[in-house]
């Protein structure tokens, strides 16, 4: 020990609080972080959803078929109803001037559900419940033409691509995403059945269907048969309505068309 050194302190200094650890309410931080991240998440999802839905229309229909074939095989049948529906669909497609490069297939599903839907790969499914309700040919053709229009407009793949994009963001953030699922879209069987379309997509599909029917029938009366049924009986509707909203508005649009 040398003399020029300062003396040894007799006790430890009091170190001010709040330097190494800030004492503030953690709820404030939680609120700030969750809202900030949620907003960012929504924006990223929206951008991804929009850009993927937009880009999906450039995927050739023949590529879609590769994804959907394994599912469609389960429904392959040669029943009388399927043949009848297929014949009607082919007739309608001619009226729509479809080039027929990729075959559109219609499948009859023996189920009470009042539903019909189009999904990727050019497959249309029509349920027995729906066929029981439709009494007229034009009513059934309207449904088939509407679903065919969705496929020709590439609505199913756009809807699916958007949904996959959103799922991807959610999986990235929560960190428990099963990325294998992204390859095997087959796992998303449910999703393929309940693809949802925008009102605009529905409106365009209705208009295309009516155009096709106009060239097949002299009188379009009764084309709105299904929507009228849904408007009357809304107890039975939710599942179908989830993908086909606003029957009243659509009846009105069809009636407008009829009066022209």
């Amino acid at each position: 020990m040398t003399d020029d050194q300062e003396p040894m302190p007799s006790q430890n200094p009091v170190i001010p609080e709040g330097i190494n650890a800030v004492r503030e309410n953690p709820f404030k931080e939680l609120l700030l972080l969750t809202t900030g991240i949620a907003v960012a998440l929504v924006i990223v999802s929206l951008v991804l959803w929009q850009s993927l839905s937009w880009g999906a229309k450039f995927i050739p229909l023949s590529w879609e078929m590769r994804i959907s074939d394994s599912i469609a095989q389960q429904f392959e049948d040669t029943s009388e109803q399927s043949m009848m529906l297929q014949a009607r669909l082919d007739h309608i497609l001619q009226a729509m001037e479809y080039d027929g490069k990729v075959p559109l297939q219609v499948h009859y599903v023996d189920d009470d559900l009042v539903n019909a839907f189009a999904t990727i790969g050019g497959h249309i499914f029509v349920f027995r419940g729906l066929m029981d309700i439709l009494q007229t040919d034009i009513g059934l053709d309207m449904v088939l033409a509407h679903e065919a229009a969705h496929i020709l407009n590439r609505d199913p793949i756009q809807s699916l691509a958007g949904a996959v994009g959103v799922q991807l963001v959610v999986a990235l953030i929560t960190g428990n995403g099963d990325f294998g699922q992204m390859n095997g879209i087959i796992d998303m069987g449910n999703q393929l059945m309940f693809l949802t379309y925008s009102r605009e997509q529905e409106r365009v599909a209705d208009a295309m269907a009516l155009d096709a029917l106009a060239s097949l029938y002299d009188d379009l009366t009764g084309a709105d048969e299904l929507f009228v049924w849904f408007a009357q009986d809304d107890n039975d509707a939710p599942e179908f309505l989830s993908s086909h909203p606003l029957p009243d508005a659509r009846i009105e649009a069809i009636r407008n068309r009829l009066s022209q």
Binding site: N20, A21, V22, R23, E24, P26, E29
Partner: peptide, 9 residues
Amino acid sequence: NSYESLLDR
């Protein structure tokens, strides 16, 4: 912040 106070302690 939430870890800083823990490590400080």
